[in-house]
Simulated assay, not measured.
Amino acid sequence: MSLPINIDELLNGRTVEWERIEFRKGWNPERSIKTICAFANDFNNWGGGYLILGVSEDNGKPDLPPSGLQLRQIDRIQQELNNLCRKIIPNYFPIVEPVDYQNRKILVIWCPGGSNRPYKAPETLGNNARFFYFIRRFSSTVRPNNDEEHELLSMANQVPFDDQLNHNAGLSDFDLSSIKVFLNEIGSGLEKEISNLPVDEVARRMNIAEGANENLLPKNVGLLFFAKNPQKHFPSAKIEVVVFKDETGTEYSEKIFSGGLHQQLRNALDHLQNKFSEQIIRKSASIPESERIVKYPYAALEEALCNAVYHRGYNNDSTIEVRIYPNRIDIISFPGPLPPLDKEKLRNNQFDIRKYRNRRIGEFLKDLHLTEGRATGIPTIIDAMKKNG
């Protein structure tokens, strides 16, 4: 069965960062179990990662076309994986899918961030092996240092809110048509199979539900994107665009955007683009050509609002507010930066923080090309404003 991602974009690093992908020409079980463990620990809440077999690596990127694997190799690897992952403590099982790519067969091992971290894996596969924690540090799988291990232990059973189960909802709350449209848009092969699958199988394959068959529950991220009525479960998951006549704030007009996160985001962006699409012609005595600018460049508005949707906390009752004043726009998204990022670091353009509040929302937004790489948001906004003059 197909994975809920565009394989071509995955292998070319367009929707998943390179540091979340590890390529291997062949099968090395001892090395692979450590990588799977590291992705499961999801130390920075990146959303886990992908181990791709049958593809050689060249400086962290795939060497294409792939060398590929034989069918008998794939069968053997899948059998070994089942036993191998039982050695991880607690047990963790990734989602595995053979894929035909450029006339070769490769094996994609999707390792979402685990719900029961921290996980340990054996140092070797021999007898009396010692077990250690493993994490990803940039593009490498490593054992954490003392400070990192202490932080990992403090994250025990702490699952980001967007990846948590929702005990007040059921699979019947999902809108399969919305899921189908999403899969079609990102070019996932799963879209062609969805009509013949029960909703529980679709939800498992997309990792938007989890649990035993008799008690399979939706995850918050699934409801935020694909519920029939997302605001039934998250009343404040909306974007409010408020236009103030002046600084007093007594006279204003308001428009509210609701629905799935990607739907409300796109509708709000369309609204802002229409509002600020009028060009301003600026003439200069030193330059013969007239300069055309807009009040607020769309690239800056898009990046700012997408970041607000990506990084807000969805377990509070505050909406995202876009406040438009005569001389500025304020975009407010609670509860603000995740420590250690703070106002001082933002003021000094220090964006090297690697922790994220939501680990799944960004995946879906990247699949739709609504957000880009990490730590690029504010620099992109500043660059767009400078280019606009």
Rank of each mutant, 00 (worst) to 15 (best):
I5W: 12
N6P: 03
N6M: 09
N6T: 02
N12V: 02
T15W: 01
I21W: 02
G26M: 09
I36A: 01
I36S: 03
A38W: 05
N41G: 04
N44T: 07
G49A: 10
L53A: 00
V55P: 00
V55H: 02
S67M: 10
Q70M: 14
L71I: 09
R72I: 13
R72K: 15
N82R: 11
K87G: 01
I89M: 05
V96Q: 03
V96H: 01
P98H: 09
D100R: 12
R104K: 12
I109H: 12
G114Y: 03
S115G: 09
N116W: 01
E123P: 01
L125N: 11
L125H: 04
N128I: 05
F132W: 07
F132C: 15
F134P: 04
I135K: 05
R137E: 15
S140M: 14
S140L: 12
R143D: 02
N145L: 10
P160S: 14
D162Y: 05
Q164I: 10
L171K: 04
D173A: 14
D175H: 13
S178D: 15
S178V: 00
I179P: 01
K180M: 05
F182I: 01
E185C: 04
G189Y: 02
L190K: 11
S195F: 06
N196C: 06
N196R: 11
P198A: 08
P198F: 00
D200G: 04
D200T: 08
E201N: 02
R205G: 06
A209S: 11
A227G: 02
K228M: 11
N229M: 05
N229H: 11
K232A: 15
H233T: 02
P235R: 13
P235M: 12
K238R: 15
K238W: 06
I239Q: 07
T248M: 13
E251Y: 08
K255M: 13
F257E: 02
G259Q: 07
G259F: 00
G260F: 04
D270E: 06
K295P: 06
A299M: 03
A300S: 14
L301E: 03
A304G: 06
A308R: 03
V309R: 05
Y310G: 01
H311W: 00
G313I: 06
Y314E: 06
N315I: 14
S318P: 03
P335H: 06
L341A: 13
D342A: 09
K343H: 09
E344I: 00
N348V: 08
Q350S: 03
N358G: 06
I361V: 15
K366Y: 00
L368M: 15
G377A: 15
A384D: 11
M385Q: 14
N388S: 11
